[in-house]
Design a protein around this nucleic acid. Structure first.
Ligand SMILES: [Mn+2]
Ligand SMILES: [Mn+2]
Ligand SMILES: [Zn+2]
Ligand SMILES: [Zn+2]
Lengths: 152, 152
DNA sequence: TAGCTAATTGCAATATTATTGCATTTAGTT
DNA sequence: AACTAAATGCAATAATATTGCAATTAGCTA
């Protein structure tokens, strides 16, 4: 049986990403490799400044602007994605169902529609339960096109 | 048939919220009423600075700190809630399934676990479809307790 | 109704996060 | 090795968020 070290796995996945970047005509730069490495080896979501801090602790210095731009690029190529959302505050009506917070956000006109569905909530709760996770509440955002914008 | 103006409806809902505030020992202050009014009458999610701007346009001036504090209070009483999330960036593996971006975030230890489920995605897509909404992708976050923290 | 007081707000200072234009550097090519 | 478009770093600025404290106010009491 072959044993593969964690670091070599990371190297492999980073290499895949790099290959995709190059395939699209982007350069395989040092900063891009560094960011990819950190993303690959870290378990949880990282902010640009998280990444900056992790690298700094290793004596590698990247400008935060660079990190923002790299992350934007990775997201645009679906190699990474952002967590929701604008971080804005949202109103909710008083009679809101527990766990109901779903938003459909139109990419074109920006319209936001909120809805609730108990069954969907229950399924999601059950699903999380299978992982041993006890859901207190959940929020979700659907990004796409509203009926009006879709027709155009 | 009775016709009720939109403004009187807003007044009613705001009054409900105010009543709940007072029931918990919080004062019914002018700033709180103003923020509630804006939240009630506006269709889409608003950031603290959105609210500040709307009020300013009406000649009402609230300090942004006040708005933050009011929104925090409303959220703590479940009269409002925030959209996700830290706004941070998230890594995603290359083989990620379209529309798979789900995170379970432990309120206690902060652990974040990402998972994917095609069926759940499909159901959500279908659900949105019923509203005429065409989903491009969706992200969601489950907030609760991981198995370890739940046991304690 | 006026005065009292705890709660709330406003202010000022600071911190954090994000964006832009431009000079400098670098990866990939010749 | 030289060239050049692409990418990065830098500096300035903007936007968002938090904290401690002084001033104000809502609700209570006399
Ligand atoms: Mn809701
Ligand atoms: Mn994902
Ligand atoms: Zn639309
Ligand atoms: Zn936990």
């Amino acid at each position: 049986m072959h044993l593969v070290s964690r670091s070599s796995i990371i190297a492999l996945v980073v290499r895949d990403s790099i290959r995709i970047l190059q395939g699209q005509g982007y350069k395989a730069t040092k900063p891009r490799k560094l960011v990819l490495e950190v993303l690959e080896e870290t378990e949880k979501p990282l902010s640009p400044y998280d990444i900056k801090g992790i690298l700094r602790a290793r004596g590698k210095y990247l400008n935060h602007v660079t990190i923002y731009r790299i992350l934007d690029l990775l997201c645009s190529l679906n190699l990474a994605h952002k967590m929701l959302s604008s971080g804005g505050f949202v109103k909710c009506s008083l009679d809101a169902i527990e766990g109901c917070h779903r938003f459909m956000v139109c990419q074109h006109c920006g319209a936001i529609r909120e809805f609730a569905d108990k069954e969907l909530c229950q399924e999601e709760n059950d699903f999380a339960q299978d992982f041993g996770f006890h859901t207190e509440y959940h929020l979700s955002e659907f990004s796409g096109l509203c009926s009006q914008c879709y027709r155009k």
